[in-house]
Design a protein around this nucleic acid. Structure first.
Length: 554
RNA sequence: GCGCCUGUAGCUCAGCCGGAUAGAGCAACGGCCUUCUAAGCCGUGGGUCGGGGGUUCGAAUCCCUCCAGGCGCGCCA
């Protein structure tokens, strides 16, 4: 409907231009949107005000000119008004909205989807936590966001791959192996010093205990180097398996698990470094090899090969991102914790140096999560290993509540996650507000069936009976869903869908309390039931995109 | 010191590609269950949109500046 009005306006402007009534040759950026206030019509546009700038004429005068030519131009428009500073408000005929319910019935779980992505290949990389310890709440936020975003992007027609990048080489891996080895020795009764910088979480002790169970003293008898190596691989595997399990509990799926190690095994990092040297993108100083990132917008040059000859994480990351594009993705979306934000300019710089387009990489930074219990911060110290894991949070509050909590807020603002609130199964917790509406509708449909009223279909229903203003408002809201999804995809902001669902559900609950769906009038009941089906479908589709369940009973 | 993010009701947050009287939930107070789920609904109160300046017909939204909080700042990842 919105596009329809836009077309209408464009045509009228063209007319005016041809007749020399408008000076400009192209249209200014204008919007057609549903006004907040119903008195301002179903749809409104600021077109006249935008034109006023360049036309140097009063907006209302321009509006009048346009409106004169709009009258009778469309069978769907009831009336048109000029209001305020020069808004043009459209009041649509009731029937104009009816098609929406048919559209929903026809499209079903595809309602709201589109072909906007045109099958273009996008890779969404998220979580990518080092396999050195369990996931915590912050990873959960990134996981929820990445997963929802991937769902949304595929819904609007992109070919999306979800990837987890595993940092399985480097110092932290050495430290992991050492940590396990020492814990293992301790388990076997040896007195060992546990140096700073190692992973001293309880989970390592548990892994060591298992290791003893499986291998007894076997590892201890190996040469230390081999033992350490074994421990590294063993610990990483166990922890990664654990991470996978947590993510599964959290409803998060990955298509590919990309190992950093393979970048070395396949020679990608080495090749890339050689290439950089040939092209003069790197230089040597102070014993290290530096990339000229400053030439591409970064504030400092960055080390790719350290003084000791080993490569930095940055070097791997360059190779990794090049890999992404080599694999045919036209865009890479990375979801990072905000503490890595300083890293964006250098990676962008390198990709620029390699000749990739500006928007090839889109980094989304998710801000920190403060975990609270009853308003009091829960201590989260990684060093001591005393932290609340994502698993614990899921077990305590549930996947749906946790995901919804993350996905109701913008990612670029810090978030207070209060366990007690998330756990409450009441109206303090918006996820239940939304789910309850779904369950309620299911219940209504069940009740109707008991009364012998079958779910209506497009051919049997008489939508004309939906004459209440609330019904019309709900239909209008349903009509907006595809637009919300598209906007959410474009902005990479899943929370827009949550906010929309809460608004829709608010309208539904109000309607439910005021009107009965199943009445003595079969035709009316049937048409209201049709409306219910529409709401339920949109709720399902929306919740599906968020990865939150839509329970039939609560 | 420099950079990124944030500052909206008592609390948690939407709204931010400029648009019409600034929204929701919670908390507070008062109502609504013999009929489709009260995890719901209705009503009341609650705001210098961090402060100041600027651009504009119009600013919570854009620009500058200051203040406050968080995060980061050459060979850790």
């Amino acid at each position: 409907m919105k596009q329809y009005i836009e077309e209408l306006l464009k045509n009228v402007c063209m007319q005016c231009m041809e007749q020399g009534l408008l000076r400009q040759e192209s249209l200014p950026a204008f919007v057609v949107e549903a006004p907040r206030n119903k008195e301002h019509g179903d749809l409104a546009t600021n077109l006249a005000m935008m034109l006023a700038k360049t036309e140097r004429r009063p907006p209302r005068q321009i509006a009048q000119m346009l409106v004169d030519r709009l009258h009778g131009a469309s069978p769907h428009v009831e009336k048109i008004e000029i209001a305020g500073a020069g808004f043009i408000n459209f009041f649509l005929k009731h029937e104009a909205w009816h098609d929406v319910l048919h559209d929903i019935a026809t499209a079903g779980d595809r309602f709201g989807s589109s072909q906007e992505g045109g099958g273009r290949r996008i890779i969404v990389e998220f979580v990518s936590a080092n396999p050195t310890g369990p996931l915590h709440i912050g990873h959960g936020r990134g996981a929820a966001l990445g997963d929802a975003l991937a769902r949304i992007l595929s819904f609007v027609g992109y070919d999306v791959v979800r990837e987890y990048y595993i940092n399985d080489v480097g110092n932290q891996m050495q430290n992991l192996g050492k940590s396990l080895y020492l814990r293992y020795l301790q388990e076997l009764g040896q007195q060992v010093d546990f140096p700073e910088g190692l992973y001293r979480g309880e989970y390592m002790v548990a892994i060591a205990r298992d290791l003893v169970q499986q291998k007894g003293r076997g590892i201890m008898e190996l040469p230390e180097h081999d033992a350490m190596r074994f421990c590294t691989t063993y610990a990483a595997e166990v922890i990664l398996a654990d991470i996978k399990h947590d993510l599964e509990l959290f409803g998060v799926r990955f298509d590919t698990w990309f190992s950093e190690r393979t970048l070395f095994d396949n020679g990608h990092v080495q090749e890339l470094l050689a290439h950089f040297q040939e092209t003069g993108l790197v230089y040597e100083t102070e014993g290290a090899l530096w990339f000229r990132t400053t030439q591409f917008g970064d504030e400092k040059d960055r080390v790719v090969v350290k003084e000791d000859g080993t490569t930095t994480y940055f070097a791997s990351d360059i190779a990794y991102h090049k890999q992404k594009f080599d694999r045919g993705f036209v865009q890479a979306i990375d979801i990072w914790g905000a503490d890595h934000h300083g890293y964006v300019p250098r990676l962008t710089a390198v990709l620029k140096a390699l000749g990739y387009p500006e928007n090839a990489l889109h980094v989304i930074l998710v801000q920190m999560v403060n975990l609270l219990r009853d308003g009091i911060p829960v201590a989260m110290s990684t060093r001591s290993g005393e932290f609340v894991t994502l698993r614990q949070v899921i077990e305590e509050v549930g996947t749906d509540a946790a995901r919804f909590m993350f996905l109701t807020r913008r990612s670029d603002a810090q978030l207070d996650f209060d366990l007690e609130i998330a756990k409450k199964q009441n109206d303090e917790n918006p996820v239940y507000y939304v789910q309850y509406a779904h369950a309620r509708i299911c219940s209504i449909i069940g009740y109707a069936a008991e009364k012998g009223i079958a779910p209506p279909s497009a051919s049997t229903v008489s939508i004309d009976l939906l004459t209440e203003p609330e019904e019309r408002d709900i239909i209008r809201k349903l009509a907006a869903f595809p637009e919300v999804v598209a906007g959410s995809a474009r902005a990479c902001e899943p929370h827009r869908i949550s906010v929309y669902l809460m608004e829709l559900v608010g309208q539904f609950h109000r309607y439910y309390n005021r009107y009965r769906v199943v009445t003595d009038d079969p035709a009316l009941s049937s048409s209201r039931l049709y409306l219910m089906l529409g709401i339920r479908q949109v709720l399902r589709n929306g919740l599906q995109l968020l990865g939150v369940s839509a329970p039939e009973k609560m």
